[in-house]
Design a protein around this nucleic acid. Structure first.
Lengths: 200, 200, 200, 200
DNA sequence: TATGAATGAGGATTCATTCAT
DNA sequence: AATGAATGAATCCTCATTCAT
């Protein structure tokens, strides 16, 4: 009991190695030999556990998305107010820790593949929707009840913020902005929108 | 006269084919054979005209950036007020025409390579700086003279808008938002920031 | 026991095929496809076993040199006197058997590469030094004890003989001299030098 | 008048460039593009003037051999005695000047091709025979008239010396011996042989 | 379960050669 | 006479995949 199956363990090893390789060498540098080598395994094993390179990549992307979601969930659980909830989401997506950086690098690689690989695109879409939903929820609590066209405003701000976060990820991956700046910019965007709605 | 050199013409053919291939098949699918094939030429010619695949890619990226810049310049020339200038920049970057879509696809491919290929990164940086400068200029005319901390506000909004545009490009490439929406979102962001500054 | 590892076996197969190909088709004709084909294997396997064409070539050169050294060692072991030792070295280097001819052909190919490929040059140097050392030793026993400037004489004759052997290899490879002649010429050189030293 | 034909001039330019390229980059590095480039001409011209790369190489080898022969002839013309004649031949073949070094490098490249290219082999053979004949002649004057088996001795020493010179060329090309040493070794060989014949 | 042997396809690059201008 | 455009073959290398052990 408590002993995870060897199969699950090996799969995790390979996914872990895949993440590291993607972060370190990019999509093109992530050959099966290099990924397996990083895990101390032989390249042939990938076929055994995943059948396919594509499936390993898919599993890896799912893993990264899951981690991101977990992170959001954890931070959200500790948030007491709508404003804190919003801050939690932003922090989860734009945090400056090592994990965040690696995830972002991997994410960027997946991104460039997503619009050509339907399976990856699907995972991408799910994650994006999850973020949108979280933002929606937080903003819904944040905007004044009496606002005319309230639902539309929530939707608009949620969309805008999600897109801004995408842009910030890109910039962060290119090293153009610091993590602190990114968070400030994201929250500043919401402030501005609130101001426009006359709620401040 | 009017007869461009054969060399320039062939180079343009190849760059054109490279753009099409990148848009249609992505970075990984853009082999020299396919690029040259699309231009109706043999793969060996790339060496003849560009020396290198890397140099062809570089020239192609430069071409795309140049087109984008031209587009901006043309629209800006027709703009009469600061507000129109801002609209022109947004339209140039987020326009919905066929050219825009292809360019965006190519741009996305380059993006995913930029942080690993110094030469591409350089071109990328230059283009980003050009956009930033244009935004700066337009916003400088737009914000009220008497604003406290005016320079900082201009800088902040310019940065935020540039990043938002990046995000919008991504979404547009993934087909998540329509061109009309993207422009509305971008201009909405500026409106919101102006509102926050109490200028409305 | 007696079962060598498959890896070692395949490596030997490829080295063997490389030697044959070099002898038959020369350095320029020795493409990976042809080498592997001669071994009944696919070209990709070279990467698997040697990583590189350069490394295969290096291993092959080392192999040829090792065989030559073994040959010398074997003949030297059977030699009873300094004169016989000298004869053994000459026979080892200028023997007329099939092995000798193939080795010489390969050696010539390597030679033409040695002054441009540092790795090959190193192996070449080591082998040359080994020959020089053997000659030194044999001549040291051969020259009369009381000779004035004895050490210098040994050195000079050893050098001269080594160089003569080089020349003889070349001629033999071009088919200009018969193996029997080559040996006679080499030993004749030593005789002449001994005569000059007044020891006969 | 006195004006050599343009055709001859261009051919010489290309041969000159070919020699330089061979010396600088070796047989494998001597592509038509590089050779023509060094001459400031286009690669296509080679076809025009020589028809073939092989023919350019052949002409180049002939040129190098001719220069070598000229050199020998010039030095021989100034030699008054058989001993001086011998010294002249050795000096011509093992001289340490820049021309000598370049020629030797080119010669070595040709050598490695000679036993596979019949046309080059033929030129090689002619040159070797010319050297042999010169040596023959000089030694014929040098050996005492009354020597028993005189003709055989001349033949033997001439052959041995020619072969030693080959070896010395190789060593010189590899940088193992200095030009001065090479000449000393060559003349020392003759001295030794003369000593053996009891003529000293 | 895991290895590593083996393949074959595909990619970039180099190059001699041909040919229109 | 000379260029340089264009080709197509050849070469090395990388890689995903398959398979026997």
């Amino acid at each position: 009991m408590g002993r995870r199956s060897l199969k699950a363990e090996r799969r995790d090893d390979l996914i872990r190695a895949c993440i590291e390789t993607l972060a370190a060498e990019g999509w093109e540098g992530a050959s099966l030999a290099r990924i397996a080598g990083r895990a101390g395994l032989s390249a042939g094993l990938v076929a055994h556990y995943f059948g396919d390179k594509a499936e390993l990549m898919e599993a890896t992307m799912r893993h990264v998305c899951f981690q991101l979601w977990q992170r959001q969930a954890k931070l959200l659980a500790a948030a007491a107010s709508p404003a804190e909830r919003l801050g939690a989401i932003v922090a989860a997506n734009l945090g400056g820790d090592q994990f965040g950086e690696e995830s972002r690098a991997v994410w960027l690689e997946f991104w460039s593949q997503a619009h050509r690989a339907p399976r990856l695109a699907r995972i991408h879409r799910i994650t994006a929707r999850r973020l949108a939903s979280n933002l929606h929820h937080a903003l819904n609590g944040l905007l004044p009840e009496a606002l005319p066209d309230r639902a539309a405003a929530v939707r608009r701000i949620a969309t805008g913020l999600a897109i801004l976060i995408d842009g910030l990820w890109l910039r962060a991956a290119l090293g153009d902005v610091s993590p602190t700046e990114t968070r400030a910019l994201a929250l500043g965007y919401v402030d501005a929108e609130l101001a426009r709605l006359g709620t401040r």
